[in-house]
Design a binder for these strands. Structure first.
Length: 572
RNA sequence: GAUUCCGUAGCUCAGCAGGUAGAGCACAUCACUUUUAAUGAUGGGGUCCUGGGUUCGAAUCCCAGCGGAAUCACCA
């Protein structure tokens, strides 16, 4: 156990004292709440009789104690409301313990309490709850960061990103705007879900542990199943499973899925992330573009009541219809080069001319992708569908109805980033098998992200899959846009972090169990001997002298140990 | 992976011509019956990220490491 700070010790002492007074700091029974802070603040008027007897529960977030009366702020799940607590009303009799000791001394900021009382307006005009009784619901043993606010200015904000992400619970308690982002995230997802359900598409669940990680190009996480003695992969996509369900006869299926990719982390990438994929039979990618527009516009309206959304320095308008441009046209527009009829060698020359890095392992598809990514991607701020991708970079996508070198694919670009990816799905099993084999060749050339062949998926297609259009959308990115969050970590409750470094300090028990008295063990640690094992390598006379010296210098008034005592301490 | 910046009290931060470690909030004690960043008084609290080096002396200067942030590169 780490050494406790003064404030933590005081809180543990308060916990003990509460118990001595017969107050259970962690009661088990239900506490019935009849009102919430926001509701009261919204609805209360001096004439109203609605709130003459309310019961609320929440955390104490601030206290202003003024002798026989006190104010404090109670924070429940909706917000904060001020409480007014009067000594003689809490303690009508002679015994004022409940106010003087329990409320004033033994309770702290961060504790959960329940209160009953009536709502009124103070002289300064703040709607408050006049408390007639309170109940301790849970004692907090660690001090929360104290954030104060006046006239919209925040003082002593809790801002350290590492602490905010590692201890998101604290972040949520003291930074109310953080909670809003996550409530909006839920609203985004619910809006989409309602949209799909209205159309009778079916929400499904498919395997996260997959024997073949298919449906996308990415390095997977690998794990091992002991009973079967086989490797399993955490899914990088769920596409192939959802299409199997279309084969099975569902007309529309969708899944909000956690996918996993074993790649770098930055402001827009987290190793696990959420994707919504939807597949609808008898549709094509043109239909899917209309559908996607409608869905995204609806999300913007649900969240903001309008289609314009501030994202960084830009205002992005999600009003339908979005601009549509083919990939080749986009490249021509930005570079002046028409690559539509180029072979691999010509593409490499073009890359060289444009100063774009390329490697021998890159096939035609990757080269085109690279050119697009370097020259075009960043310029699409307003929602834009990039359509008709070259066949080499889309092995699961149906060939274009007018041009066999292209596929019926679109990506939706927003703020220079990919948001959606969609196809007229490839349902020709023979073509699909050929495309998988081409991926194998890429793999042989050294492309470690090329897809594996999924023979069962091909088998499913052989039974027949209706013409289908599918779309995937990055939910985390969508949330970043919709909530104007610059980092993916701001829209994930618990973003992936490097493991927290463990204290490199021995527990104090390691010292005491070697026979060292507690007070000297603490001295040794503050002197820098944080590992007992390291201590035993030092000559006991030196340690003895240093201990006595420290005792004198810091006026600890401890009785100095004898050299033989120290010798014994170090001999364990 | 590269560059830059950062790491001091529970929180936010100051201190860096090297010379006994500071403020505000929080905490503790006292006063105060409608305050609101409540107020007034008093007080406690720190391996100054870790390890090495320079020095009589390092929070401060140098080196290395750890952790974090930003930008870039790589990666869907």
């Amino acid at each position: 156990m780490q050494q406790l700070s003064e404030q933590e010790l005081i809180r543990r002492d308060s916990l003990q004292k509460l118990r001595e007074l017969g107050i259970e700091p962690y009661p088990a029974q239900e506490f019935k709440v009849t009102a919430y802070s926001q509701e009261i603040l919204d609805k209360f008027t001096p004439e109203s009789t609605e709130f003459i007897n309310v019961t609320l529960a929440g955390r104490i977030m601030s206290r202003r104690i003024m002798g026989k009366a006190s104010f404090c702020e109670l924070q429940d799940s909706y917000g904060r409301i001020q409480l007014y607590i009067n000594r003689d009303e809490i303690c009508p009799g002679e015994d004022k313990t409940l106010y003087n000791d329990v409320f004033k001394r033994l309770l702290d900021i961060g504790d959960f309490i329940g209160v009953t009382g009536y709502v009124f307006i103070t002289q300064v005009g703040e709607i408050s709850v006049h408390v007639s009784s309170f109940t301790v619901l849970s004692k907090s043993l660690r001090p929360l960061p104290i954030v104060k606010e006046k006239d919209g200015v925040i003082y002593d904000a809790f801002t350290d990103p590492e602490q905010r992400y590692r201890q998101r619970y604290v972040d949520l308690v003291v930074n109310p705007e953080v909670k809003q982002v996550f409530l909006q995230r839920t609203k985004i997802i619910n809006t989409m879900r309602n949209f799909f359900n209205e159309k009778n598409y079916v929400e499904v669940e498919t395997p996260i542990l997959q024997p073949i990680p298919g449906g996308a190009s990415a390095r997977p996480f690998i794990t091992h199943h002991n009973a079967l003695n086989i490797p399993l992969y955490l899914r990088i996509a769920n596409e192939l499973y959802l299409k199997r369900l279309i084969v099975g006869g569902f007309e529309g299926v969708y899944e909000f899925a956690k996918d996993f990719r074993n790649e770098g982390m930055d402001r827009t990438h987290n190793p696990e992330f959420t994707v919504m994929e939807i597949y609808v039979a008898y549709k094509d990618y043109n239909w899917m573009m209309d559908f996607t527009e409608e869905m995204i516009e609806r999300v913007a309206l649900a969240l903001h009541g309008k289609t314009q959304v501030q994202v960084g320095d830009n205002i992005i308008d999600f009003k339908r219809p979005f601009k549509r441009i083919t990939m080749y046209d986009a490249i021509k527009e930005h570079t002046g080069v028409d690559i539509s009829n180029m072979n691999e060698a010509e593409l490499r020359t073009t890359c060289d001319k444009l100063g774009i890095h390329h490697e021998p392992s890159m096939g035609k598809g990757k080269l085109i992708d690279e050119i697009f990514g370097e020259t075009c991607e960043a310029s699409y701020i307003q929602p834009t569908f990039i359509i008709d991708y070259p066949v080499e970079m889309s092995p699961l996508c149906k060939k274009h109805r007018n041009n066999p070198n292209l596929t019926e694919r679109f990506e939706l670009m927003v703020n220079g980033k990919e948001l959606c990816n969609a196809y007229s799905e490839l349902n020709d099993p023979i073509d699909q098998y050929e495309r998988f084999k081409e991926q194998l060749e890429l793999s042989a050339k050294g492309d470690d992200e090329a897809m594996f062949i999924d023979h069962d998926f091909v088998r499913a297609l052989e039974y027949g899959m209706p013409p289908t259009s599918g779309m995937g959308i990055g939910i985390d990115r969508l949330c970043m846009f919709m909530t104007n969050s610059p980092s993916i970590q701001d829209v994930l409750f618990f973003p992936q972090m490097k493991p927290e470094i463990k204290s490199h300090k021995d527990d104090i028990e390691v010292y005491t169990s070697a026979g060292i008295p507690q007070e000297w063990a603490e001295v040794l640690q503050t002197m820098g001997y944080v590992k007992y094992a390291a201590l035993t390598e030092i000559k006991y006379t030196k340690v003895h002298q240093e201990l006595c010296g420290y005792n004198k210098k810091h006026k600890l008034d401890l009785v100095n140990p004898k050299p033989e005592d120290v010798k014994l301490w170090l001999q364990q």
